[in-house]
Amino acid sequence: MSNRAIPNAFVKNVLQNGLGRYICQLQRVTLNFCKATPSSLGTRDFIEKYLVDFTRENPGTVVYVKPIRNRAPFLVAEYLNGRQERVSTKDMPADEVCKWLEHLRTRSGAQIVNLRKEWLTNTPSTQGVWHPFLNKNPSLAGTSFPAPELYGAKTESKSATDMVLEEAGVKKVGSVDSASSKE
């Protein structure tokens, strides 16, 4: 499968959450479990030991507990963006159920896809985007080209070559004057 066919996205903050106040995106969670079968043992333990604490700490999440007969237990999380996530808790001990519930609680509810970048910024540069005219010397706008004085290496003092050439009375090779004299 080519890379383009795999769904990918940028990091997204739903509703600028956390900028003003943080709103937990998990709006309700349903714990489905069987009252008798051993595969639900850990989920039943979780409900006995930790569920009340969870609801106290997260009053913004509605918790439903739903017994189902002779089925493997699972959690269904519903998010504010309208999506649902389902996690099977079959044969899991209570603390593992805790971990999965914590995972569901801290998610934004957006589908997990490949992230193109792990960060996002609204202002990639406060200075503005670079362009070829940026910080260009304004005097260049009025210069007529070709302008040989702009091309050579900029040295503060005369180089040895310059001095020798001056002594010999020869013009520098490659300068515009010499090129035009050849023609």
């Binding site: 106040r21 309700r28 913004g60």
Partner: peptide, 15 residues
């Protein structure tokens, strides 16, 4: 699995 009173309560707490 729907309890309107619980949902209303959670809405206020969520904000």
């Amino acid at each position: 699995n729907w309890n309107y009173n619980a949902e209303i309560y959670a809405f206020g707490k969520r904000l």
